[in-house]
Design a protein around this nucleic acid. Sequence first.
DNA 1: CCCGACGAAGGACAATTGTCACTTTGATTT
DNA 2: AAATCAAAGTGACAATTGTCCTTCGTCGGG
Lengths: 198, 198
Amino acid sequence: MLPINNPIVVQHLLKDQIDAISPISDEEFAYILSHFVVKKLKKHAFLVQQGDHVKYDYFVMKGCLKAYVADEDTGKEFIYQFAVEDWWVTDREAYFKKSAATINVDCLEDCEVLGITLENREKLGAEMWKYEHFLSVKANWGYNSLQKRLQMMIMGNAKKRYESFIQQYPHLYNRIPKSFIASYLGVSRETLSRLYAL
Amino acid sequence: MLPINNPIVVQHLLKDQIDAISPISDEEFAYILSHFVVKKLKKHAFLVQQGDHVKYDYFVMKGCLKAYVADEDTGKEFIYQFAVEDWWVTDREAYFKKSAATINVDCLEDCEVLGITLENREKLGAEMWKYEHFLSVKANWGYNSLQKRLQMMIMGNAKKRYESFIQQYPHLYNRIPKSFIASYLGVSRETLSRLYAL
DNA sequence: CCCGACGAAGGACAATTGTCACTTTGATTT
DNA sequence: AAATCAAAGTGACAATTGTCCTTCGTCGGG
């Protein structure tokens, strides 16, 4: 049994994620959290828009977003990442270089995210060894997932890519419109539709 | 005019690369360099082989290599990165996680590379702020180039990918066999051949 | 000097995928 | 309840790309 005066442990996705890499106290987490801003967005709202100055790196608390590049010639979208609870998303290059965004990020559902500026990120990294470590592990995760994604795109045809997606993200399949999944897999909506008819 | 006793500045690709990010003295560079091992490899030799323990991250001094995954079913190769002078290459995930390599890296030409273990990498990072900074910038470069690569693969057909490759790596086009470039672009050798006939 | 290995080009045909048009379904709005 | 709209499935056809095969030229070793 918990002691009567046990302080309430507030469940927090971000704390859990950091904890899994380098365990921190509630006080430390509260300090970290104070460097983030909360943003609530409606479905279809933009988190990052092409040409914007990208002030924040975002951690997703609730909802689902897509990051994509828009082909101006054809008007088509090419989704290169989905982000759901527990994921991070931003235009990484623009964020670090303080350059204009080349990608868009928008909400597929009502969303709630935490944003941190580059300045606060570096401040926390310099102040807390544990956070610095967390960042470097997180950077590796990002790299590895990009590499997996690239491998999926290079290796084989539409069906293989589809199967690989299902295997890697079973929970996204019934959450995201098929047309967006098709864009993520680099095939037309119709082709995707025919794949799982088999 | 240079003073008569000016010490000879040894030209070194790696020093130049570090210098461009955080300038270091010759002494500092000599110290850094002492943490690397030199490897010389003949054409066709493997630098990393699937299943290996990946001990080093490699900086290419001379030569040209390809990093690829082999599809066991079809026996085909999918090249996801070329590496020439001034580039880094390894199986990044395996290197950091100390897991078995899932990719192969082999030499398209006789090569000369510098290798650094994860232990030495971390030692240098901890000892020298400048090197730590260099590593983090380098990590971002790697991420950004992967992202560009992914965008290239997602957006559009074989011709667009080909044009994008030519634009980004004009010097690689006449150095690397077309069949490998085709593999990098995710098309058959024949299709690539037909593209620049137009 | 010839031979074999390799890289490259291209023809013929098959397989894959994209495009367009139409239909159905279910959710949302009025 | 009717109207509207977004999402998804499907058929027909066209465009793209892969596969298989043959030919050609270059380079280096015997």
